[in-house]
Design a protein around this nucleic acid. Structure first.
Lengths: 204, 204, 204, 204
DNA sequence: CGATAAACGAGACGGTACGTCGCGTCTTCTG
DNA sequence: CAGAAGACGCGACGTACCGTCTCGTTTATCG
């Protein structure tokens, strides 16, 4: 390895989760711009130096905190499989994710703030948060299409983004809850109609 | 009036646009977090005091800069009216808006950053940027529906958010261009299919 | 005259004393460094512009305020003339001048502050305050010498500075009152002994 | 100790002299009113925060800079002792102190400026600068008197202030050099005559 | 088991931006 | 047109946070 010595005190990586949790707490409490490393260190009972030794700075720390949030429920083999797309989709609504808590909302907004900073930050957020969600919806829709649930061809890539896009938009920009009624209105008003009709417009 | 004195030198409000334009320039050049009042003042040829006298701080200034951006093209009577929804929608693609320029993208990201700060900021952005766009699409879709362009009922409120949501999502989170192919794929792959089929799912 | 027009409203020079008095008041209340033109203007019921139109700035204003203080009692023909130097000197003690009031003390300290700024300021203070006082004492001593009150020659220039120097030193640096006991101790302990002995040291 | 923490990086007090020297340099170069903390910090190669961490502000910094100037030559056991007062006094003339350099003069004027600010500042200057000088002259004069160098009693307290007072007056208010001719004129024209004659006036 | 070397909490360091305030100048309106 | 009121460009103030660097202490491995 590059940066490890055989001797000396070992870095206590058991503190990492503690610090990252403190980061998310402060992020939710005070927002991105008002978060200071000192606040995180104080809440984690750590020194600032310890944080700087592990992460490059504010953005890197927050990115790490975001990235380590458990998205295991979006892995392909843990997705709902009811045999019907509509019920699969409704089962995806995690009240604790986007719209459920003000906490999550503020964290999402903070993350968004960082995306404008560097391409690296944007890519990290995309990989950690955005892509898994889109991929999950793509999986469900593709599976339903493969089952022959819909008459014609469908633009699965576009449709897979409908729910993540609209949920984020609602939470971030409209600041309204991403709840069951909203989910139902998207599924029944946009997604399923589009699929039922097929991916082609009738307009020439 | 509330806050005007009959005497003394008048505040030169002809400088407002100059300063706000400088704000957007700096915002696009260096991003939200690295923007300083000094930069804006220097670019506008003003003193920092003059800016603080007019706006409460960084966020208020940026909000004002955003709010005064010209959205006249989204007013109802200036929207495209080709007699057919698809061509109307395609005519809405303003290459200078979301995806065309890196400038607009950075500004949008910066704005998003502020939405997590205060409810006031969020409401201001919503009213200045989000709502007008959604309202414009709602207008086009409702008009087409009134023309009887589609067979059944449609969830116009939900459908009106499809394009704004997905465009913002693509620009902000995917960092890909909001261009004609993308627009076409949404219109032909999501919006028009959903309308053609109607606003009701066939699922019981 | 250089700067007078035949027409228009005439500058109201009757306001000058009012403003200069306000200057001294503020100077005594808050000191040199904390004095602002705004304070003076407010106390005089004037606008800042009016002050800047008449004096070049803070230092010039204060200098003018100092210079116009009435030192008429130091003119040669108004000095005490009792026929004897000691009683003349004691009659010079103006309890309202140097040591009497904290007000005068603070003003003196403020003046001193300005002397380090420019040679012009120093010269102005010297001419307005220092020189007249030294000249008065020189006049008294010279007159007594001319009367033959003392046996030998005297270094009148040096001796004339004894009282002003020691009074200023006591007030400024020791911050003790320049009162009758102090005056008496200088006159009887320094000045008259030196004169009585004569201006020449006996040391070879 | 009062204000020391057991942990954390220690304040580097070896930088104090460097900063205080820079303070005196700037003070002499630009004067009291035009001195800025930034100038001092830049010249000392320090950050402004470091200065504010150690001293409360401009006045406190300058006071500290003054107070730490080396006055060791005024300690009793290092005073000249020629066996005769006149030569002792002449040996006191330090061309580098009051009048020799413009530098010292400007510093003295700056110090005087602060004496009007707070009683604390005045006391600090008095103790650091004024008192030691007066005490030194008192020592010399008292020793000569004890030797029986003069016929009668003398008001030593008053006489000890003659040279410091007149030197300060000459430098500050007359802005003339405190040099050997001046020193000689005071000693031979004021101080020694007064002592030779005695501390009592012949006037009834 | 003692030496040693890195990690740790704490906090000082050189910087930089903040938001405020006073400078001296310049409008604007009132008398 | 002088004067009050106050906005203007400028720049210093004192504070707070950045990311780095000592401090003295703790902890883990190696000799």
């Amino acid at each position: 390895m590059i940066n490890s010595s055989a001797v000396g005190r070992k870095r206590d990586h058991s503190r990492d989760p503690e610090i990252l949790r403190a980061t998310l707490d402060v992020l939710a409490d005070t927002g991105y711009a008002d978060l200071t490393i000192e606040m995180v260190a104080a809440r984690a009972g750590a020194g600032r130096g310890t944080i700087y030794r592990r992460w490059a700075g504010k953005d890197d720390l927050i990115l790490a905190a975001i990235a380590c949030t458990d998205r295991a429920d979006l892995e392909a083999d843990r997705l709902p499989d009811t045999g019907e797309l509509r019920t699969d989709l409704l089962a995806m609504l995690d009240p604790d994710w986007l719209g459920g808590s003000e906490r999550r909302l503020r964290i999402l907004a903070s993350v968004t703030a960082m995306m404008g900073r560097t391409p690296e930050a944007a890519a990290a957020v995309r990989e950690a948060i955005v892509e898994p969600s889109v991929a999950a919806y793509r999986h469900l829709i593709q599976r339903a299409a493969d089952r022959g649930e819909f008459p014609g061809p469908a633009d699965v890539d576009a449709l897979a983004q409908v729910i993540p896009s609209m949920a984020a938009h609602r939470a971030l920009f409209l600041r309204q809850p991403v709840d069951l009624p909203f989910f139902t209105s998207i599924i029944d008003g946009v997604l399923l109609p589009a699929l039922t009709r097929g991916g082609q417009s009738t307009h020439p």
